[in-house]
C-alpha cells in the first residue's frame, strides 16, 4: 500500500518523512525520527506510556496514525528540557522526589504532569491523581509521583513570583 509524505512539527522543528497509513504516531516518533524518549507499553490505549502533547493537549500516541498528525504540532518528552539541556521543573521534581524507578512510565507521567500544570498552577492531590489516572506505573508507586508534581507546582510558582 502507498505511503504518504507528511510533515509534523516535533518539539518546534518541522520533520518530514514518508509513513504508511497504518504507522502509529508513536512508531513514527520512535522508529522514523529516533525520538525514543516516548515509550510503548500496551499499544492499545491503556497504559499512557506513549502520552505526547498534540497541539498542546495530552493524547495517546499509540491511538493515532502518524498521517493524522500531518501539519500538526507534537511535543515529546525530549521537548521538555530547555536549550541548554537543563531539566524542566517537572523533570527536576521527579528526580528530586524519586518519582521514577525503572522509568518506563516516566515520559507519559511527565507529559501528563506538564499538561496539568499548564492549566492548573496549584493542583490539589485529587486533581493530580485525576491527571495521572490514565497512566500506569508498575514499580515506583504513585505517591512519589504525586509528590513530584506537587513539588513542581511549588517550584514553578516560586519562579513566577521571582520573575
Amino acid at each position: 500500500m502507498s505511503t504518504m509524505n507528511i510533515t509534523i512539527t516535533v518539539n518546534g522543528r518541522d520533520r518530514r518523512a514518508d509513513a504508511a497509513p497504518r504507522m502509529t504516531l508513536i512508531d513514527f516518533l520512535r522508529d522514523e525520527l529516533r525520538l525514543t524518549g516516548s515509550h510503548i507499553g500496551c499499544e492499545h490505549g491503556v497504559c499512557g506510556a506513549c502520552t505526547v502533547l498534540l497541539d498542546g493537549d495530552p493524547i495517546r500516541a499509540c491511538l493515532m496514525f502518524a498521517v493524522q498528525a500531518d501539519g500538526l504540532s507534537v511535543t515529546t518528552v525530549e521537548g521538555l528540557e530547555d536549550e541548554t539541556g537543563a531539566l524542566s521543573a517537572v523533570q527536576d521534581a521527579f528526580w528530586e522526589t524519586h518519582a521514577l524507578q525503572c522509568g518506563y512510565c516516566t515520559p507519559g507521567m511527565l507529559m501528563a504532569a506538564q499538561a496539568l500544570l499548564h492549566e492548573n498552577d496549584d493542583p490539589s492531590d485529587a486533581e493530580i491523581r485525576e491527571a495521572i489516572s490514565g497512566n500506569l506505573c508498575r514499580c515506583t508507586g504513585y505517591q512519589q509521583i504525586v509528590d513530584a508534581i506537587k513539588l513542581a507546582a511549588k517550584t514553578l510558582s516560586t519562579e513566577r513570583a521571582n520573575a
Partner: peptide, 9 residues
Amino acid sequence: VGHFQTRNR
C-alpha cells in the same frame, strides 16, 4: 469518560 488523554481525542 475515559481519561483526559482519551477525552482530548
